[in-house]
Computed example of a mutant assay.
Amino acid sequence: MKIVAQVKLLPVSVHDADALAATLRACNRAANSASEVAFRTGKVRRNVLQEAVYHRLKADFDLGAQPAVRVVKKVCDAYATLKANLKAGNHGPVGSKRRARAESKPIVFREDAAQPYDDRILTWNLDQCTVSVWTVAGRIKHVPFVCSPEALKLLQQRKGESDLVMRDGMFFLIATIDLPEPALYEPRGFLGVDLGIINIATTSDGQIMSGRRTNRYRRRMNRLRAKLQRKRTKSAKRALKRVRRRESRYATQRNHIIAKKIVHTAERTSRGIGLEDLSGIRQRVTARKHQRSRLHSWAFAQLGSFVEYKAQRAGVPVVHVDPRNTSRQCSECWHTHRTNRVSQARFACRSCGAVLHADHNGSRNIAHRADAVWQRGAVNRPSTA
Rank of each mutant, 00 (worst) to 15 (best):
M166D: 02
S235L: 13
T135E: 01
N380T: 10
A59N: 10
E36G: 03
R282K: 15
T339V: 08
P180F: 05
E51M: 09
R294Q: 15
L82F: 00
Q6L: 05
W334R: 11
I140G: 00
S96D: 11
N325W: 14
A314S: 13
S331R: 02
A26Y: 00
Y217R: 14
K2H: 09
S331D: 04
A348N: 03
N325A: 13
R376D: 11
E186R: 13
S33T: 09
L224K: 15
D277L: 08
V373T: 12
A226N: 08
I177W: 04
E103T: 06
R225A: 09
G92F: 05
A236L: 09
G362P: 06
Q291G: 03
R110H: 12
E111T: 06
G189S: 13
D205G: 12
T123M: 06
A239F: 08
R282N: 15
A378L: 06
S279K: 15
F306Y: 14
A348I: 09
N361E: 11
C352A: 08
C352M: 06
D16W: 09
T130Y: 07
L179G: 04
E247A: 05
V48T: 06
Y54P: 05
S204F: 11
L240G: 04
F145A: 02
R268G: 14
E150S: 08
H142V: 00
N32Q: 06
Q6A: 10
A84K: 15
T384C: 00
T336F: 01
W124R: 05
D127C: 05
Q115G: 00
L195R: 15
A65C: 02
L154N: 04
L295M: 11
C333P: 07
I273F: 01
A68P: 01
L275H: 07
V108W: 08
E276V: 10
V44W: 07
R350V: 11
E161H: 13
E150A: 13
K227W: 08
S327W: 00
G315K: 00
K58W: 05
M166G: 00
P187H: 02
R45C: 01
H335C: 07
R324D: 08
L278D: 05
T123C: 07
L86A: 01
R188G: 04
S104Q: 11
K231I: 10
V108R: 15
Y309R: 02
L164W: 09
F190T: 15
V136R: 03
H368G: 00
T384G: 04
G192D: 03
C333L: 04
S297L: 05
H335T: 03
H290W: 04
I262R: 12
A151H: 14
H360S: 01
L86Q: 09
K83Q: 06
R167C: 11
T203D: 07
G353K: 12
D119G: 07
F306L: 12
S13W: 00
W298F: 11
E247I: 03
R249A: 13
A175L: 07
I197S: 09
A5V: 09
H264C: 07
N125W: 02
M166V: 05
S162N: 00
V12S: 14
T252P: 03
S248E: 14
R212V: 06
I262C: 13
V72I: 11
H357P: 02
Y54G: 03
L228T: 06
A5I: 14
K241R: 15
R369I: 14
L191I: 02
V193R: 03
F172H: 04
N32E: 10
D127A: 10
I262P: 10
D118Q: 07
C333H: 01
H290N: 15
S331W: 03
E247Q: 14
